[in-house]
Amino acid sequence: MGSRCVKFGVIALILTGHWKFNMAPHGKELSEDLKKRIVALHKDGLGYKKIAKTLKLSCSTVAKTIQRFNWTGSTQNRPRHGRPKKLSARAQRHIQRLSLGNRRMSAASIAAEVEGVGGQPVSAQTIRRTLHQIGLHGCRPRRKPLLKMMHKKACKQFAEDKQTKDMDYWNHVLWSDETKINLFGSDGVKRVWRQPGEEYKDKCVLPTVKHGGGSVMVWGCMSAAGTGELQFIEGTMNANMYCDILKQSMIPSLRRLGRRAVFQHDNDPKHTSKTTTALLKKLRVKVMDWPSMSPDLNPIEHLWGILKRKLEECKVSNIHQLRDVVMEEWKRTPVATCEALVNSMPKRVKAVLENDGGHTKY
C-alpha cells in the first residue's frame, strides 16, 4: 500500500511539473581517428584514467569506447534504425503529384487529400517534411506581369530579331521608363532581422504616416554612357505632357549617343498615341519596336530598383526633400552601373528565348 502511494505521489509530481529530470546532455560523437587512438593506447597497456587524461576525455567515454570495441571488434557505430516512415512510397509520389500539379495548394489541403484517398491521417507538418525531402519548399512567389500567349509570342519574336545584335548596337540605345517613388515605406514587402521582444524597436518597425505622405512620379532615361535626363511628372500624364518630356528631356539625351541612337519606350497608350508618333516622326527619332508586357527586357527597371534602395538610406520628411534627394542620387549613379545593366542585354535576350517568351530571372 505504501509503495503504491509513493508511485502515485511521484506521478503527481511529474504531471504538475514539480519534478524535474536532470538529463545528461548529449556530447558530440567521437571521430573514427579518435576512437582508434583510444583503442591503440588501451592495447599498449594504458588504463582508462591515463587515456582520458592524455586525450582530454572523460573516463566514461573512454570506457564505453573500449567496451564497444571488445564487444563488436570495431570502433564504428552499429546501424541505427529510426522510426519507420509513416507514408509509403506510393503516398509520397501522390503528394509530389499534388504539389507539382497545383503549386499554390497548402500543406493542410494536401494532407486532407491524402487522407481522403488512403484513409490514413496525415499532419500538415508531415506533408511539409515530405516535400522538403524532394526539394520543394514554400516560398514567396515572384511578382511578374500576367503574360498571355500573345505577349509571349511577341517577346519571343523580339528576342529572335535581336539575338544577333552586338554590344555596339545596345550601346546606342536610349532606355526610358516612368516609375513612382514613395515618401514613406514602399509598395513591396519588407523584412527585418530581429530577436524576440524587439518587435517595437525603432530599427525593427516600418514607419507610416496618417497625413503628409505621398509619392512622386518621374520619367527617366539611361544608356551605356550613364544616366540621362530625369523629369518629375506633375499630375496625370497625357500624350501632350509626354511630348513635352520628349522634347525637353529625351532629345538632349538621345543626341549624346550620335546618329545611330535608337529610342526605347514601352507600349503605354501615351507613348503610342497619334500625337506622340507624329512628334517622333517629325524629329526623325529611330524608335525600337518593343513587345508589350516585357519589363524583363528593359535594364532601366533594375536602375529604378537600385535608386529606390539608395533612397531608403536617406531620411526625408516631405516631398520637396524627396525630389532633391532623387535628383541628387540619379546624377550620382556611376556610369559603370548603367554600362553593366546594358551589357546584360544579350543574356536577357537569351533567357527569353530559353523560356519560350515567358518570365525570366530579370
Rank of each mutant, 00 (worst) to 15 (best):
39 V>N: 02
135 G>F: 12
225 A>Y: 01
40 A>P: 12
214 G>Q: 07
359 H>N: 13
338 C>D: 13
305 G>K: 02
163 Q>E: 03
72 T>M: 02
15 L>Y: 11
295 P>K: 01
115 E>H: 10
206 L>D: 01
151 H>M: 07
341 L>A: 13
51 I>E: 08
230 L>P: 08
350 K>N: 14
132 H>E: 15
224 A>N: 05
210 K>P: 01
180 K>W: 09
345 M>W: 03
95 I>Q: 12
181 I>P: 09
259 R>N: 15
216 V>H: 02
44 D>R: 14
125 Q>H: 12
305 G>Y: 00
351 A>F: 10
304 W>F: 09
241 M>Q: 13
299 P>L: 14
107 A>W: 09
8 F>N: 07
78 R>C: 02
241 M>V: 09
121 P>H: 08
159 A>I: 03
237 M>P: 05
321 Q>C: 11
129 R>I: 12
22 N>A: 14
256 R>W: 03
266 D>T: 10
167 M>Q: 06
351 A>P: 07
63 A>D: 12
99 S>W: 02
229 E>M: 07
333 T>G: 11
203 K>C: 04
177 D>Y: 02
294 S>K: 04
336 A>C: 04
131 L>C: 05
113 E>I: 10
71 W>D: 10
145 P>D: 05
279 L>Q: 06
224 A>T: 04
239 A>C: 00
271 H>C: 03
173 V>Y: 03
280 L>D: 01
150 M>W: 09
195 Q>W: 11
317 S>D: 01
8 F>Q: 07
145 P>R: 04
283 L>T: 06
41 L>A: 06
35 K>L: 01
62 V>H: 04
10 V>Q: 11
267 N>K: 14
341 L>E: 08
223 S>C: 06
174 L>A: 06
232 F>W: 04
260 R>P: 04
56 K>S: 15
165 K>H: 06
111 A>S: 12
298 N>A: 14
52 A>T: 05
230 L>Y: 04
115 E>Q: 13
111 A>R: 10
259 R>E: 15
219 W>H: 02
202 D>N: 15
136 L>C: 09
86 K>R: 11
170 W>S: 14
300 I>Q: 01
83 R>P: 14
184 F>C: 03
66 I>S: 00
135 G>P: 12
221 C>Y: 04
303 L>N: 00
299 P>W: 14
137 H>A: 03
